[in-house]
Write a protein that binds this DNA or RNA. Structure first.
Length: 298
DNA sequence: TAGGCCATCTGGTCCT
DNA sequence: AGGACCAGATGGCCTA
């Protein structure tokens, strides 16, 4: 299905009624899903919505293309949530736009955000390094023993420190991502950082118990080849998930749902670990309490 | 709308 | 001195 929208200047704008397809020029920057358009609700793209600001000096006579391009991301977001607003792009253009404008898709937003951040980082880094180089050159020409930093230098140091801090945080996040890949998870899992750490601790407990059970011939898992290792990892993950489910669903160690939240809660970690409650049977039985279908994998 | 989670900024402290 | 690390503050986004 295809919709044609006309402005008052009789310019035509084709919109394909596909959720993934966004409005075409000149309002393509809004990225409004086309199905949200409705001819009955007309509003013009406008500079005068309260609290809207443009980073180019708020020229009310900008074209729609320019206005939307220069909208701050936060305002663009607000723009997409505005209902029945009147926007004046240009007196000649009145676009028919629906009154329930949808938000941008997650993917699109994430991509845009990432792009903006990368650009910002590069720009900041370049500026700070350039200024630092200038300052180094200047300092070589002066003979002062103790370096007195100018406000500009302090600002530069701050910018560089921010960049380093961001990089540090990013490497931390990469480490969390790697950890999430290693830990066997259930389909329902959406691990936050703290949950990831707690679940990792449980997995280590679990692996420790598996090792203990390896004294039993029937549970021996000794990978020799890389294929064996992969299979072992899969089976461990499978068994660990089963163990989680088992212990979450009315098991004697955890109460409540099998959500990560419950599974990872500090109380369960500190007080309900099977081998800490003095029940040695529980210690030995962790891997033995798998449903038979699972335990047979070992 | 409140609460959770997150990224970022910031200033302080520690370490090399 | 400079970088790493840390914790508090802040604001954005998402979900129940």
């Amino acid at each position: 299905m295809e919709t044609v929208i006309k402005s008052e200047s009789m310019e035509k704008y084709e919109v394909i009624s596909d959720y993934s397809t966004m409005l075409l020029s000149p309002v393509s920057n809004m990225q409004i899903p086309s199905h949200s358009l409705n001819k009955r609700d007309s509003f013009t793209l406008c500079h005068s919505i309260p609290s809207w600001t443009f980073d180019n000096g708020s020229d009310p006579k900008l074209t729609g293309q320019t206005v939307l391009t220069n909208l701050e991301p936060s305002n663009r977001h607000r723009c997409l949530n505005v209902k029945r607003a009147r926007l004046d792009i240009d007196s000649r253009h009145h676009f028919m736009i629906g009154d329930s404008v949808q938000q941008e898709s997650q993917h699109q937003k994430q991509k845009q955000k990432q792009g903006r951040e990368e650009q910002k980082h590069k720009q900041e880094q370049k500026q700070a390094q350039e200024q630092q180089r200038q300052q180094q050159m200047n300092s070589r020409t002066t003979k002062s023993k103790k370096k007195v930093l100018s406000p500009q230098e302090i600002q530069n140091q701050r910018v560089l420190a921010n960049i380093r801090e961001r990089q540090r945080t990013q490497s931390l996040n990469e480490a969390f991502a790697m950890l999430r890949k290693i830990i066997p998870t259930l389909p329902s899992d959406k691990l936050s950082k703290i949950q990831t750490l707690r679940l990792a601790a449980h997995y280590i407990d679990f692996l420790w118990k598996v090792l203990q059970n390896e004294t039993s011939e029937s549970y021996r898992v000794v990978p020799t080849t890389s294929i064996d290792q992969v299979k072992t990892h899969e089976r461990l993950g499978y068994a660990f998930s089963a163990w989680r489910m088992e212990n979450a669903n009315g098991g004697s160690y955890w109460n409540g749902s099998n959500s990560v939240e419950n599974f990872c809660s500090p109380s369960t970690v500190s007080s309900q670990r099977p081998y800490e409650d003095g029940n040695q049977d529980a210690v030995g039985s962790v891997s033995l309490t798998f449903p038979s279908a699972y335990s047979s994998t070992f």
